[in-house]
Amino acid sequence: MKKIVVCVKQVPATNDVRIDPVTKNLVRESVEGVMNPYDKNAVEEAIRIKEKTGCNVIAISMGPPQYSESLREALAMGCDDAVLLSSRAFGGADTLATAYTLSKGIERLGGADLVLFGRHAVDADTGQVGPITAEFLGLPQVTFATRLELGDDGWLIADRLSPIGSETVKVKLPAVVTVTGEINTPRYPAPIRIMKAARRDIPVYNEQELGCDLERIGIKGSRTVVTSVFTPPKPDRSTVMIEGNAEEAAARLVGILSDAGVL
């Protein structure tokens, strides 16, 4: 293991996410940004691997200039370097165009033995950028990892969440892995590291420097269009009192839950 690239996204700090009624995009101005919580898990995991192997960890993000705040936080946590992919031309990108741009960024960094993502970003909740980036890079992927362990001969062993429980898989490096919140508890950056990270210049790459196909970035490169955004109606809540002994009550409960389609 020589190099890990961690992809981080800055998301609005507030839970009260506002949506522009015209553009249907998230309103990102004037809201304090924080690093996407799952991306913090990805950064933490990368740093833990670094502490074991001495590898290099680079954080990367695509977004407006203020996204360098989250990259600085990644540096303060222990990443060695950080780069920001930023340009007007990247604006309005959907998950496809974002993943394309990130893959170009990772190529610009000379690739990596391991590319880490958070399982999804808490603002848009798609969980697609990690997997699509893996496709662009032509790398195998493991999603929803809850534990990582370096195996022999360039294999990585991962526990991952699956719909039926937990499964253990192994993947030949280089690979892309998305991690869950369970994988670790991210550290607080030490004050002295914060001071140093705050004083660092973070290199910014635009579409020319990445050699991007201009048809594949930003709005132009996006194949999905958000047609409407709405707050989902809250489900009705009702209470049913179940009578009878434990066995009968359990059977009734299973029946109700099956009918409701939740089992």
């Binding site: 705040e69 600085r72 936080e73 607080y188 950056p189 004050p191 914060i194 001071m195 990270a197 705050a198």
Partner: peptide, 16 residues
Amino acid sequence: FTTEQKMVQKMVREFA
């Protein structure tokens, strides 16, 4: 506040 100050504040706030 400076970038340093804001970053420390954010870290302390999360910790607190």
